[in-house]
Structure formats: structure tokens, C-alpha cells
Design a protein around this nucleic acid. Structure first.
Lengths: 189, 189
DNA sequence: TACGTAATCTAGCATTGCTAGATTATCAAG
DNA sequence: CTTGATAATCTAGCAATGCTAGATTACGTA
């Protein structure tokens, strides 16, 4: 009687479709267009069904955000291994980070500026969240004693650049110049 | 017949009360508690009156944000002149910036993460927005040729630190250590 | 086949931003 | 002082939102 397993699979698949729809709509029309009714339409179920998968709307945003952290971690890991030269590796990671934020603005927004209740540097931190941090740490400066603080600072700089660029508060034209400055600041151990 | 002037003053005063109420409620209970009905109650007028002052809710947030940029600029200017030593000046500015973000979280949110349609580095940039940038620029490195890019990068780092700290994604305990790292990165011209 | 449970839906509540149209206050002209 | 036009303000309501109680249907089991 594998019907329970089948139901489980179908449930998981439906949940996947919910987050996928949320992400797609958000990326196309912004998060304010992601309404429960709209998602219900998209998956061809009634609204209450969504609440059997997620506690509330924010939980859907959170699910998308976690997905995003996984993808960002993968991208950063890849970028970190593109060169053996430390300077080039840092630069590659920085460029990748900013490209990720630029190419998935709604996803990035879910990860960092929408209320999700996701925390780091705490006991219940999800693995997806830790991996990205690890990829940054690996490239910052494996030798220095203050790896964690240095990684946090590097991450903050990248996040700030991503945010200020997205909101049109720093010049898009000077992106490379800023990356160069940032990388230089993190080179001299 | 100075009644027109009196009406103008009363109107301005009412507008001031609207933004003040919005800011106070936001700082106490978060921006989601700032509803038009609530503000109308607070100023003891009906809801439509608010729309004779602001086009919509976002415009009220924007007004508060501009107020915030003015105050931040003042704080940074003051911090920049606290020491003649460049290293100490930078450090003072960085510390002030982060303290400002920490002490007025809702205000800072209005300035940077809520949709306001405020831009920089553009023609219609408001003076309040430019002044803060100028205070940062003054301290970064008046000698180097790339002042603007350096200032943007410094600003981004500060903004990133403020945001990641607020959302609990970097350790509060390591704040000073991160500031030290940041300042060192921006010292060697 | 009948029953009990789980899955799903219909219908609705309260709250939101915003607005049309009615009502009241204001003030110059007669 | 009265009148009438204009400006200021309010009442009442719309459509959309997140969310949920209670009815209905589907489904596996005895």
C-alpha cells in the first residue's frame, strides 16, 4: 500500500510548485504581486490549501529565500575556485556575488530585506545559510586569525554594494572600480 | 488679510504632525502599524485629509526618510570633525553611522529598504541626500583621485554592516573588530 | 457497501489603501 | 447681516488583502 508515499510525493511536488510560482511572480512583477489568491490560482487549488503547506505568507517568502541561499552558496563556491591566485579569487567571488544580486533581484530581496525571521550565527541556522558564509570565509584570508570578523566585514561590503546599486544610490558605471577598491582593502593581511 | 498665511502655517504644522506620528509609531511598533486610519486618528482628522498632503502612503514614508537623511548627515558631519587625525576621523564616522542605524531602526529602514523612489547620483537628488554623502567623502581620502568611488565603497560597507547587524546575521559582539578592519582597509591611500 | 477520516472547497471576516460624493465652514460681495 | 460661491472636511463605501470556520467531497478500510 504505497499510497501514503505517493501522497507524500504529490504533496512535496505541490509545495515545490507554490514556491516556484511565488519566485516567478516576484521576479516578474515584484513581491507585492505575490498574493495567496494568485498562488492558489497558479497551482489550481483553493487558498486554504496553501495554509496546509505554509503557516502564512511570510513562510512562503522564507522558503524562497532559503532556496536562494543555496544557489548563492553554489555560485560563490564555484567563483572561489576559479583561480589559485588569491587576489583573483576574491575578485571573482565579489563579482559573482554582485551579479547574483543583480540577476535575481526579487530572490535577493527575499533573502535580505523582506521579513523572514532567518538568522545566522545562531544555533538553529540552516545549512544553506552557513555554506555561503563558508565560501566567503575560504577566500577572504585563511591565514589571518580574525577570519570570522573579516568574512563578516567582506560580506557586509558586498551586501551594501548590492543594495545601494539596486536602489540606484551609487553609480552603475563605477562598479568595477569599487570592486577593485574593496579587493585591495582585503588583500593586505 | 493674513488669513492665507495663517492657513499655510496651519497646513504645514498639520503635515509635520503627520510625519512625526508616522515616525513615532514606526519606531515603536514597526512600519506595518503605520496605517492611514491610525495616522488620521493621531492628528484628529479624517483619512482623506492625509491625501491632501501626500499622494499615498509611500509618500509619507518618503517624507520621513528625507528627514532621516538630514539627521544622518548632521551626525556624520559632527563625527568627521571630532578629530584631526584621519584614522580617528574615519573611525568616528563609521561608529556614528552604525550607531545612528541602531538607534533609529525604523527611520533607517525608511531611508534604505522601504520603497520610496529616492535616488542619488541623479539630477533630482534632494540636498539632504547629498550632504551625508559629502560628509563621508570628506573623511574617506581627500587626496586620492577616485574619491567618489571610494566614498561609495565606504558607504556600502557601512550600510551592509548596519543591515546585517540589524537582521541578526553577523555577531553584535564583533562590531568593533569589524570597524577596525574596515577603517584599516580605507587608510592606505 | 457503508463508514470514518482526511483532503479540499465555499463563503466570509476584518483590515488595508484609497476615493466619490455629500456636508460643512469660510469669507468676499451686495 | 445675508447670500452665495469656494474651499475644507467628512461619511460611507469599494476592491483587494491575509487568513479561517464550517460545509462538502474524496478515499481507504472494514
Amino acid at each position: 500500500m504505497g499510497s501514503a508515499e505517493r501522497k507524500g510525493r504529490e504533496r512535496a511536488e505541490r509545495e515545490r510548485r507554490i514556491t516556484a510560482a511565488a519566485r516567478a511572480i516576484a521576479e516578474r512583477e515584484g513581491w507585492s504581486a505575490v498574493t495567496i489568491r494568485r498562488l492558489a490560482d497558479e497551482i489550481e487549488y483553493s487558498q486554504p490549501v496553501l495554509y496546509s503547506h505554509f503557516e502564512n505568507r511570510d513562510a512562503i517568502v522564507t522558503a524562497v529565500a532559503i532556496e536562494g541561499f543555496g544557489e548563492l552558496a553554489k555560485a560563490l563556491h564555484k567563483a572561489a575556485h576559479r583561480s589559485a591566485d588569491r587576489r583573483k579569487a576574491i575578485e571573482s567571488v565579489a563579482t559573482s556575488y554582485l551579479a547574483f544580486a543583480r540577476q535575481h533581484p526579487a530572490l535577493y530581496q527575499a533573502m535580505f530585506t523582506l521579513p523572514t525571521g532567518l538568522h545566522f550565527a545562531e544555533a538553529d541556522t540552516k545549512p544553506e545559510l552557513k555554506e555561503g558564509f563558508a565560501a566567503l570565509a575560504a577566500v577572504v584570508s585563511p591565514s589571518r586569525s580574525d577570519v570570522e570578523a573579516a568574512t563578516e566585514t567582506f560580506w557586509a561590503a558586498l551586501h551594501g554594494l548590492a543594495e545601494l546599486e539596486r536602489s540606484g544610490r551609487i553609480r552603475r558605471s563605477a562598479r568595477d572600480e569599487r570592486i577593485a577598491l574593496l579587493v585591495r582593502g582585503f588583500l593586505d593581511s
